[in-house]
């Protein structure tokens, strides 16, 4: 095959084969950036973080953290656990969410986002106080949860809904990185496989 055009065709064919096989079997660019854990932050990174100027601190005092009143995503199991608790904040009726099958069968919306926002606007404003919160009193980042705190709620296609410590439900798909667990490599029927070989199964 000494003809130049035939050689060009053969080279293109081989290039297509190599590119196609590489597309199939080589890792693709990460779609989700790995979150940096608080324990991995180094001192130079902390020093390089921009400080608050004193003038800004005087004009806009630091407010202490308040409880989040926005509706969170809960599964039906979470709602049952929350209704059993006596905490008034957790006993608020929330919107049930989850995979489409769960939503269609068990969703009972009793309070919407607009009603919660209306409550927050009708609440009287708290008086502004001077900056009395010392820097050292800023709460540190919560420690990462154990692997036992994660439970697989449902799977649908290549997506999976994972309940984190009975507080919230996150959705992950193949290629996503879950902080504390690792990268999701495969999602099957009622099973999720992580990059470290660990698997999560749907608990009935």
């Amino acid at each position: 095959m000494t003809h130049p055009t035939a050689t060009l065709i053969a080279g293109g064919v081989l290039l297509f084969g190599a590119a196609g096989l590489a597309n199939l079997y080589l890792p693709k660019p990460a779609a989700v950036i790995e979150l940096t854990k608080a324990s991995e932050v180094t001192a130079p990174q902390v020093a390089a973080f921009p400080k608050r100027s004193p003038a800004l601190a005087v004009s806009r005092p630091i407010q202490p953290p308040v409880a989040n009143t926005l509706p969170m995503v809960f599964s039906a199991t979470d709602r049952a656990v929350q209704s059993a608790t006596s905490d008034p904040l957790k006993s608020l009726p929330v919107k049930a969410a989850g995979p489409p099958a769960t939503v269609n069968s068990k969703s009972t919306t009793t309070r919407t986002t607009s009603s919660l926002l209306a409550d927050s606007t009708q609440r009287p404003l708290a008086p502004q106080r001077p900056n009395t919160v010392p820097t050292a009193a800023v709460p540190a980042t919560a420690p990462p949860l154990d692997a036992d705190q994660y439970a697989l709620s449902a799977t649908l296609g290549d997506r999976a809904w994972i309940r984190v410590g009975d507080h919230r439900t996150i959705m992950a798909k193949v290629g996503d990185s879950i902080p504390g667990l690792g990268k999701v490599t495969a999602v099957g029927t009622n099973i999720l496989t992580l990059q470290n070989g660990q698997t999560l199964k749907v608990t009935p």
Partner: peptide, 22 residues
Amino acid sequence: AGFILTSVAAGLLGAHRYAARV
């Protein structure tokens, strides 16, 4: 992957036949 390999084989055969036909 099987389709890709078969496609490459067909392409190489086509290039060979092309050179022979020229």
